[in-house]
Design a protein around this nucleic acid. Structure first.
Lengths: 227, 227
DNA sequence: CGGATTTTGTTAACGCGTTCACAAACTCTT
DNA sequence: AAGAGTTTGTGAACGCGTTAACAAAATCCG
């Protein structure tokens, strides 16, 4: 089975590379920052600097979306912001459900950064009966058993796993069974899902372990040459 | 100025690709899982499946470390585990300081997954006087002003930024000034650091925005062809 | 002991992403 | 109106990472 890239309404095939998709939210944030500074037009150099990327890469990325700049002038901040927002689906809010309201799940439910990026924590779910019924960040925690009803009622397509690693696979299975088709997994475990379901994994330990590796090298025996 | 890859004690130059370094902790976790299952020897297929990667990629990755397997047999789980642990510096514990004890910082300080991966949260720091002096996860929160003393005293080289985005750059500057040379940044902001300092960024919103992009495509107009 | 079998380590091909470099297109100045 | 100056959009080169494929090296079995 092969899934084709989505064709446009005008028939042109448009496949945006994964690497580019991952940077579009960064550009969006940079554009928001520029708007707050009262900047209404910017060059690819300006925007690239704000986003922390190479200007050529930025222009290449934007070229996948269309031709939204003006040669000799630059980009209209507000116009480009809207185009990117539309492309990544941020003209609407996305309801998500968080499974597991331990320390991490609670912190995520209170995270300020979501709402401004079109993410709304719509429901909290936990397997522990002692936690069910409590209120966290203004949301009443529901039972894991109620997941299918919650997902259907609120048309939720994105779930967040914030449980211990041992529970991750079962939670993933239940999320998929309930109808969720995208999962963000914070648990330190690999989860298997059927085709058609996207999983992204954030592993807090691994990020630190990568830093530790480089630290070890620095402390050990790096050599610096040149001027 | 150019930084060379670290040569080995035996003089052979060994540069491990970044992509491989990022996967070594995953292999470590998979090996630990196998040990718990009582498996003492495994093939690259077994291990790759547990780690969720292509077997060829696994063997390629391991080949950067050395030749720790036996043809026709496979890998000794415990031996390989030790070799990887040594390579990524996990034979020692790494002390880290968390700056910002809001919801996220508090959750990180309580995170169980760190200790088993050689990460020890050694200190908590916050700029808010109301938080200074309180105890979180058994650690007394110190003032941001005490950062240099804390970093020096405990020989900390890794710092975690868990503040709002607006404070991120100043915190990064102070971490660097205090002597920290690796930073894990959870704040939704770009931070600039001098050469020689590593920064990794985890952006919770962006992960969800990427999922939302794919959701939009699924819901919109994907086409499926073939059998 | 020798051939069949297994599995690693490595080389080579492939593909994706990044970066360079420049023509095209726009503004500004005179 | 024409030339000088900007800045985008993109074709081409490059480099890195992934994957396939296979020789080398070990075990197993008759």
């Amino acid at each position: 089975m092969t899934i084709l890239r989505t064709p446009l309404a005008d028939g042109s095939a448009r496949g945006i590379p994964d690497a580019t998709v991952a940077r579009l939210p960064v550009y969006l944030r940079a554009l928001n920052a520029l708007t707050e500074q009262g900047v209404s037009t910017c060059s690819s150099n300006d925007l690239a600097e704000n986003a922390g990327v190479n200007p050529a890469k930025l222009r290449k990325d934007l070229s996948y979306l269309g031709s939204y700049g003006t040669r000799g002038v630059g980009y209209d901040v507000e116009y480009l912001r809207y185009q990117i927002a539309r492309e990544i689906g941020q003209t609407q809010d996305w309801d998500v459900v968080i499974v597991g309201v331990g320390n991490l799940g609670s912190a995520l439910s209170a995270y300020q950064g979501f709402s401004t990026r079109g993410i709304r924590v719509a429901a909290l779910v936990d397997a522990d009966p002692k936690r069910v019924g409590t209120t966290i960040s203004g949301i009443t925690v529901s039972s894991l058993d109620d997941l299918p009803a919650i997902v259907e009622e609120r048309a939720i397509s994105i779930g967040i796993i914030a449980t211990p690693g041992t529970a991750a696979q079962e939670v993933a299975d239940r999320l998929v069974a309930a109808g969720v088709t995208s999962i963000l997994n914070f648990a330190p475990a690999l989860v298997q899902v059927p085709d058609g379901v996207d999983v992204r994994k954030v592993d807090l330990s691994i990020e630190l372990q990568i830093l530790a590796y480089h630290e070890q090298r620095k402390a050990g025996n790096d050599k610096v040459v040149g001027a």
